[in-house]
Design a protein around this nucleic acid. Structure first.
Lengths: 337, 337
DNA sequence: GTGAAAGCGCTAACAA
DNA sequence: TTGTTAGCGCTTTCAC
């Protein structure tokens, strides 16, 4: 295809070599450093490079070195969601930090609205990235597709698929802690708003809730499914309509919890007196409501950083010491419970 | 480098060809469609592909086709800023839309904290992307570096560099409209909070403000530099300390305007009676303050979509009909002025 | 309808 | 210290 700027093609090693009067190999040597090259030769080559404005084609280099110098953070969610839930920026930030001084480019890829897993897989398999960190995933399809694709990937969140490394929050334990806290604060008829149940994290948090409730001899059956989005927190309305006697709410993320709190208050009940609420994720938005939201920590940046470390090990040809990493969550007590 | 999953290497065309008992060329034909291949052969090849789990290496293909199938949206800002200013998500969304049904992967790349322009340039020149849309840029360095890099790029915002396509909001005109509105509503001593003055948009908005003020016979000299961030809106404090008699404020984006309004109100003045404020960008946050923010539209998604169209033309080897596109901004009157 | 061969831009032995 | 050669995985004439 025609290149731009007057149809020039980008200069190649060959061009530089010809201009400098040396071989391609020599040019390659000065470009990549390392091997010793005579000062005069180096000088000539550099001059030629500058004159031509040469820059190596990394795709070609990648073909032989098997290294592209780019890693992807893949979020199989629409951009709307990625930008509206602070969890994702936080995760990306962690990945960025992990590669901060390693001159790899960290790109972020998210799904198009109607995408299946295949487009992301195709990108990963394309040879344009060395590896990837997958952040939010719905169901095991993506992971399955990746398992036999020879791609170095690490998931943040349980991929529910053998042979894939991941780091995950101990969601069960976290949900138990949250639920127990509600109980300790005096709540007895507690319901939960879950995340989308095609996601492992949502199911695990539900399971933790039910375990804690059953252990306390309370009814563990009251729940409604949300979507982890602010808007979907409105399902609280439905939950309260069906169970008007609820006095506690465990909401599987803060975005939904904030909305749920608004619903509760609009219905004329006070938080925490009539209704105790615990959220999840420790998002900044939880500080902006009144009362402030009690929540569970879920440090996406740390998780992504840990995932990046694993990825680096994989890339180096090793096997991570702890390929299934479960990280603890802590209760942050504020006003809502 | 060792690949994962037991050291398997990803299967190649060669492997498939051998297994199917045909040549590489034939496999390539069935993979890429187009050319006619005997049904039986096709069948055999497909079977081999499935058995091996073969996927083409796009980096290798890119080497010969000169097409990678990935385009990048480059935002030379830190991830913190990208995720905290709704302008960027909006821009990315527009780019995504433009490529929605074209099976190219649109990745997002942002800067690491201490990055110079060079890392981004390197990525662009890497051969791992076909082209890029550059969204927010400080000064002409990046554009200059790109001009002689043979890379198809389109800027959103004036790159201040010859030979680069861009689409830009008519910032001067927008600032004039905003300032005139303040004047019409009765403000006389008007100041402005600018964006970072290394950005063209910030300087142009300032210029528009000064033009409108001078045209109206008012003092155009009152301004203070902000950073387009929410936090930096606090410079309003300084501005008001130096010019306590101000009765109007043109703030170069909504994030800063919201903060500025808080400052004004904390100082005991009412908006819009004591102080009229016009913001910029038409961000959602402007609806959440009281009074709601009067602002200028700046539809980043449309701009990015237009930029994407230009990029597509460039990629096709053409020259965009209108390589320097100036788009209008409209006043949105709400409570603050 | 299919295969052989050349070549995309680069790196990495191996010689010289 | 430098050049020659082979080859990364793929597409694409050009013969057959």
């Amino acid at each position: 295809m025609a290149k731009l700027n007057g149809g020039h093609a980008a200069p190649t090693l060959e061009d530089v070599a010809r201009l400098a009067g040396v071989s391609r190999a020599t040019v390659s040597r000065v470009v990549n450093g390392g091997t010793l090259v005579a000062a005069a030769t180096t000088e000539a080559v550099r001059a030629a490079i500058d004159e031509l404005g040469y820059h190596p084609n990394r795709a070609a280099r990648a073909l032989v070195t098997r290294r592209t110098g780019v890693i992807a953070v893949i979020v199989p969610e629409t951009d709307e969601r990625v930008f509206s839930d602070p969890y994702f920026p936080q995760a990306y930030h962690g990945a960025l930090q992990a590669f901060a001084d390693s001159d790899v480019q960290v790109v972020l890829a998210m799904a198009q609205p109607g995408d299946s897993a295949s487009r992301m897989v195709r990108y990963l398999e394309s040879g344009h990235v060395d590896g990837a960190i997958i952040v939010s995933h719905h169901g095991p399809d993506l992971a399955r597709a990746l398992v036999d694709s020879w791609q170095p990937v690490v998931f943040v969140g349980d991929p529910e698929t053998a042979g894939i490394c991941y780091v995950e929050l101990d969601n069960t334990e976290a949900a138990i802690i949250a639920t127990r806290h509600l109980i300790e604060r005096g709540a007895r008829r507690i319901g939960t708003i879950t995340g989308p149940l095609d996601m492992a994290s949502a199911r695990t948090r539900l399971k933790g809730f039910q375990t804690a409730m059953a252990d306390a001899g309370l009814d563990p059956s009251v729940y409604v499914e949300g979507g982890y989005t602010m808007k979907s927190g409105a399902v609280a309305e439905q939950l309260l309509a069906e169970h008007p006697d609820l006095d506690g709410l465990f909401v599987a993320n803060d975005l939904m919890a904030v909305t749920a709190m608004q619903v509760v208050q609009r219905l004329g009940r006070t938080v925490p007196d009539d209704m105790k609420i615990v959220g999840f994720d420790n998002a900044a938005i939880g500080l902006q409501c009144n009362p402030q939201l009690t929540t569970m920590t879920n440090p996406a940046d740390e998780h992504a950083r840990a995932a990046a470390q694993m990825l680096i090990e994989l890339l180096a040809g090793g096997i991570p010491a702890n390929p299934r990493m479960l990280r603890p969550s802590e209760l942050v007590v504020r006003g809502s419970a």
